[in-house]
Computed example of a mutant assay.
Amino acid sequence: MTGAAHSPWLDQIRKQGYCIIPNALPSAILAALDTDLQQTYAKTPFGDGEFYGYKTKRFGSLLRRSRWAGDLVLQPLILALAREILGKACERIQLNVAQAIAVHPGEIEQFPHCDHDMWAGEKGTHEYLLNVMWPLTEFTASNGATRIYPGTHRQKIESLDQLGTPIAAECQPGDAICFLGSTVHGAGPNLTRHVRRAVVIGYSLGWLKPYENLWLAYPPEVAREFPAELAELAGYCQHRPNLGNYEGQCPSILLRDDIAEFPRATDALRDDQKAAVREFAEAQRGEK
């Protein structure tokens, strides 16, 4: 999708740190995904830790658990927003996480946090992450809907006392809750008798170590079934210059049938780097 730079959703994310896009995907896709994940939800144990939650279930590797998960990752508007938000600080973006979450009755409110705190780099000069929460069940203020603290992406929060009043991201399956890695948020308490289920899809700068180990989640025999764009987001590409290579080649060669036993190391440079290296090499060879 083009025109993300002029999208009202982009304006809202930049102003408030989040937006909720209604009807971003047909609800039937979310229902089909939820059906595919039911068995894994049932088998997955509750978390072990105050942050993950003792009455919350989580599991990843969604792209190999359901064909419908790719529709969430590749949603055109959201991909365009992610590339617009993150693209000024990286040569390409990557998938950071594809995780299912189920908040069960009796779960307490999650600790308010910023997801970009996973990385120790300096904050404030650029964004590290865009997360998208896709409800699989209705999100309400009482069943654990994500709580978001508007404007915190522009603040330096050193104490929970600095946080204002959060909004509960109430919405339906098919809606997309988008928020920056710098925006303080957390799951709300589930005060109902019903499980609140959702999927979080995250996009991060292509040169960061992702939250989810993509190559273990999606080894070559799995990723070769992906569309090319999805395989690239899942780590089968290089971030120029030469970052994330396999034997000096783009790791996408692992998705081919004809993998050379001894691959030939090949430059993967940005255009400006390629020009500078070429000029230097020509001078060394006496061609200039």
Rank of each mutant, 00 (worst) to 15 (best):
G17C: 07
Y18E: 04
I21D: 10
I21G: 08
P26L: 09
S27Q: 14
A28G: 10
I29T: 12
I29W: 09
I29E: 10
A32L: 09
D36V: 13
D36I: 11
Q39M: 00
Q39C: 00
T40R: 12
T40L: 00
Y41E: 09
A42P: 05
K43M: 10
T44Y: 04
D48P: 00
E50H: 15
F51Q: 15
Y52I: 14
G53N: 05
T56N: 14
T56P: 08
T56V: 13
K57G: 08
R58N: 11
F59E: 01
S61E: 08
L63I: 14
L63C: 11
L63K: 12
R64I: 11
R65L: 13
R65I: 10
S66V: 08
R67Q: 12
L72F: 11
L72W: 06
L72A: 01
L72Y: 04
L72V: 06
Q75S: 08
L79Q: 14
A80L: 10
A80P: 07
A80Q: 07
A80W: 09
L81T: 01
R83I: 00
I85T: 02
I85A: 03
L86I: 05
G87M: 06
K88C: 00
K88H: 08
C90V: 05
C90W: 02
C90S: 03
C90I: 02
I93W: 01
L95G: 00
N96H: 10
A98R: 04
A98S: 09
Q99I: 09
I101H: 01
I101D: 01
E109Y: 12
E109Q: 15
Q110H: 15
F111E: 15
C114K: 01
H116L: 05
M118R: 08
A120G: 13
A120C: 13
E122M: 11
G124T: 10
